[in-house]
Design a protein around this nucleic acid. Structure first.
Lengths: 331, 331
DNA sequence: TTGAAAGCGCTAACAT
DNA sequence: ATGTTAGCGCTTTCAA
């Protein structure tokens, strides 16, 4: 008995002795129906075990009560927070969340947007890989919200990298460092560009030097090349594109018997799962991705407004064991 | 311009000079339409940018082409593999995957199944928290597939804990260990029970002792209590409920200056993200959760058969740095 | 092989 | 406040 004949609104209407429209109203527009009638209808519906058919509802209303979240890689723990936050926000509003993995590909991202578009009321794209044009076109056909990416006319939620990078630089300066090296990720990375821009600005303001090396793979595998380059450059403070790379760097430094933080301080971005139990525990900029994911869904939930909102989510430096005084500094 | 009037099957039919039913057939029943006609229709559809409306499709066919995956905690990296695998299998079949977070709660799980049921063609429940009765009832109303849980009459995919625990015991025995302590997780955990049962059986076969301590929190936080108890019990080989607990144990042991693996060997379950970069890298039983997730969806994809399939996914011991010879053993 | 037409379950005018 | 009715876009008989 795969589907034991579902109870429809008609069954409820008949059984309650009212019209289907009244049942519909009782369910979705309380207040536009007599309280007593409503009471009765709800009771009958419950007794019959009535569950509204979402497809039918979507057919006539145009709203699916479903939202999509697209991430470049579901297994990347960095996105776990955003996924959870989005799911939470959707569930809290009684909405359904569809998940899509774009496999780090702009093409896959576009396909998913096209395929999911008609099935959902809105799409959150996290760390979008598509070009501005791709996204603008997608935004014209669907309600869109971006996470860690901005585009004129499209609502977005971004981490406060400006303040965050400033915290990083201040922290390093307070430890006596006078220069830093940024181990960059892929050039196409929007957030990578923001991180480096913030770092440069903060370094300039603090009067410390900042050099960028790379690009390196933003994964554990990127670590060896990045660490070796940093060492060759004589760096004592390195800031990595993300935590994955930072942990890769940590491992390489350990393998080369370079002590962290005594000889080299290492900072990451993301406060990813594992950043607190790697060795040494990583100093990193936490992003509150869960809030960002939730916020993006909420942006979609509220009725479209004239000017698309652009929310900035605060960041916070988590100082752990991978940063310390510059070697030979008086402090 | 939120939704600039989508192209419908009627538009395609008109533009192609055929009936809507022919378009429908060309799209979903190739072979029941003239090849030339079909070619033409497809071309027109592509030119117009036609995308089928899933709700409408679901209305008339009853099939939503959507599947749901329920996990206890989306942010737990252990489930990332299953999520990815399920998403991959669904996408490969042109299906949509809805994600639900049950927040480790049987009640939430039940609610989600009830709410999502009418909206999907099937539901994968990973590490189900509900009682057998709950699940049996849910299975009567929906197509269900379980991951790491079995129930008569419901298809399931489970990790091969029997073989896996045997590998663990063999490994420890080969290192000279003559007894082990299992640091257990929550008593309600189905997989925890399976792990302990397997361990006991394998230990008995190998003629080594096995004791169970706990329950402990299956998280980093469970580590201190578990590690202290293991030490007090004089254990030299401990097997932990999962990797989170194992890493917590590792940290506690490090804090207490107990060397791993020289004094104590530690084994985990899951080969979770991070198990390879914690210190020391963790020896653990890998589960191929991605395959399991994909397999569960595929179970739902194929037409219901008489006897529900029960798939067993192989496990594999990843020997890293946290296990070594028993202290004082001749090897 | 193709077309015409009847719904699928629900919502949203429009009446009353 | 409630009933009547016309679709929403698509699939699926049933005829031709």
């Amino acid at each position: 008995m795969a589907v034991p004949k579902r109870v429809t609104i008609t069954d409820v209407a008949e059984s309650a002795g009212v019209a289907t429209s009244t049942v519909s109203r009782a369910l979705s527009t309380p207040g536009r129906v007599n309280a007593t009638t409503r009471e009765h209808i709800l009771e009958v519906a419950a007794r019959l075990g009535y569950v509204p058919n979402p497809s039918a509802r979507a057919m006539s209303s145009g709203r699916t009560h479903t939202y999509a979240l697209l991430v470049p890689d579901i297994t990347n723990p960095y996105f776990a927070g955003a996924i959870k936050g989005a799911e939470r926000a959707a569930a809290a509003a009684g909405k359904t969340l569809v998940l899509g993995d774009t496999q780090e590909s702009a093409a896959k991202e576009g396909e998913l947007i096209a395929r999911l578009g008609p099935a959902v009321d809105g799409i959150v794209v996290a760390a979008a890989r598509g070009t501005d044009d791709d996204l603008a076109a997608a935004g014209a056909r669907n309600r869109l919200a971006l996470v860690n990416r901005t585009l004129p006319g499209v609502p977005s939620v971004v981490a406060d990298y400006d303040a965050g990078t400033r915290q990083i630089v201040d922290h390093l300066v307070s430890l006596g460092h006078r220069s830093l090296v940024f181990l960059g990720g892929p050039h196409e990375s929007w957030s990578g560009a923001r991180r480096w821009a913030g770092l440069q600005a903060a370094a300039a303001d603090a009067g410390v030097g900042a050099r960028r090396l790379g690009p390196y793979l933003p994964t554990l595998q990127g670590g060896p090349a990045a660490a070796d380059a940093a060492l060759a450059a004589g760096a004592h403070a390195v800031v990595c594109h993300n935590d994955m790379l930072a942990i890769g760097v940590l491992r390489r430094l350990a393998a080369r018997r370079v002590r962290v933080p005594e000889e080299v301080s290492v900072v990451g971005f993301d406060d990813m799962f594992g950043a607190d139990f790697c060795q040494p525990a990583l100093t990193t900029l936490a992003e509150r991705t869960e809030d960002a994911g939730a916020c993006a869904v909420e942006l979609l939930l509220r009725p479209p407004s004239g000017t698309p909102a652009s929310v900035v989510v605060p960041t916070q430096l988590r100082v752990r064991e991978s940063t310390g005084p510059r070697p030979g500094s008086p402090s």
